[in-house]
Amino acid sequence: MQWKSLWTKSKGSIYQSPAWAEARRISGDTPRFLAIKESGQLKAGLLYFERTKNLPLIGKVKFLFSEGNPLSLTEEGYNEILKKFKKVSKNFFYGINYPLVLFPLNKKLEEERYKKVTNHTLILNLSTSEEELWKGLEKKSSRWGVKTAEKNKLGFVPASNEKEISDFYNIYKETVKQGRFSPEKIGFIKEITKSGIGNLFLIKSNNIILGGGLILLDKNNKYAILNLTASSAEGQKKQAMPYLYWNLILYAKSQNLKYFDFGGYDTRATEGDKLYNINKFKGRFGAEIKPQYIYSTGLKYSFLRGLLDKSAFFKDMYFRKK
């Protein structure tokens, strides 16, 4: 109960919520809670996770990661909790923090001598009108795709039962298999939708699921994050994905959210890579490339990222291994 109170008072992100802890637990990660108390009451905290992974050439390692900004009622509380996480991480291969893209605690993390690595994502400002958002879509691809989907009479609806989630999950597993990544567990998707911190939306044709996407709703910070998407071959033909993305944008706007995060953008992807084509698709919706920082408690993660950036083989092995 104290954690939920701290989360509410500090306007924490969904990544620091009890619901996210449960979803990640179901997915296979072990949730842990760090706390700083004053007079018996929580004044700062950090939800983080323990994960075991097989690394190429290294073997099985245990590491820690936290998502979103720490929770704190005071400025000094951020420093205290970051110090504590750094200390705990010494017993693991590495510890990393993914601060919020829009509200990163760069100064605090750098004060505590965390090492910065830069990823990127795409952020769309939802404060403009629907008409302006539409104009932001690339005319010959995204706008054409949405109009084609409408001509094909596709439907955009929330998943309404476990069978629909299961049917979507089968499509998602096949999509992930083709991309050679490890899929989230179906229980993760169910928990996100059940808890209310996100929704699974489906694209249907004649009541047949062609694809869909799981969107996270960070209402405290006023933005939506696209977590995962998938489409069948038939869905690709009928332009299910442009239609899905456009309607997810409109849904986020209808929820009075200010920003839409497309869930990552790999600036290092080169032509011929699968991620390069994903970048091109995401980049056709009028969003802006923003830095997405990762802060590590030591040098091991920075070294690992250097290997990933330099070696396509090592990178492929890293994301394929659990």
Rank of each mutant, 00 (worst) to 15 (best):
D167P: 00
K153I: 12
E234S: 14
V146Q: 01
E234I: 10
L226T: 04
N152Q: 11
Q239G: 12
G155C: 10
K238H: 05
K151N: 08
I215F: 06
Q178A: 12
A224G: 04
I215D: 06
K173I: 12
I186V: 14
D218I: 12
S166R: 02
S182L: 13
S160W: 10
E174G: 14
K153D: 09
V176Q: 01
K185D: 04
I186L: 13
A224P: 06
A149N: 09
G187M: 03
K194C: 03
I215G: 05
R180Q: 02
K153R: 14
Q236W: 03
K237M: 06
I186G: 06
N152H: 13
K163Y: 15
E234K: 10
V176G: 05
E150W: 13
A233S: 10
L216S: 00
D218L: 11
N221I: 09
S195A: 11
L226M: 14
I225D: 04
L216T: 06
G211F: 10
A224C: 01
G196E: 05
M241A: 13
I215N: 08
E191H: 14
E184H: 14
F188Q: 09
N220D: 08
N207I: 07
K204L: 07
Q236S: 10
K219L: 00
N221Y: 01
D218Q: 09
Q236A: 08
N161M: 14
S231R: 03
I215T: 12
Q239H: 15
T193G: 02
K153H: 07
D167H: 11
L200P: 03
R180F: 08
E234M: 09
S232E: 03
N161W: 10
K185N: 10
I192T: 07
S195D: 02
K151T: 00
S182Y: 03
Q236T: 07
D218T: 12
K151Y: 08
A233P: 05
E234A: 11
M241C: 13
N199Y: 15
K194L: 05
I225V: 15
E191W: 11
L216P: 04
E184P: 08
K151F: 00
K177Y: 00
Q236C: 01
I192L: 07
K204A: 08
E191F: 13
E150M: 15
L226D: 12
S231F: 06
S205Y: 11
Q236E: 05
L210P: 01
F168H: 13
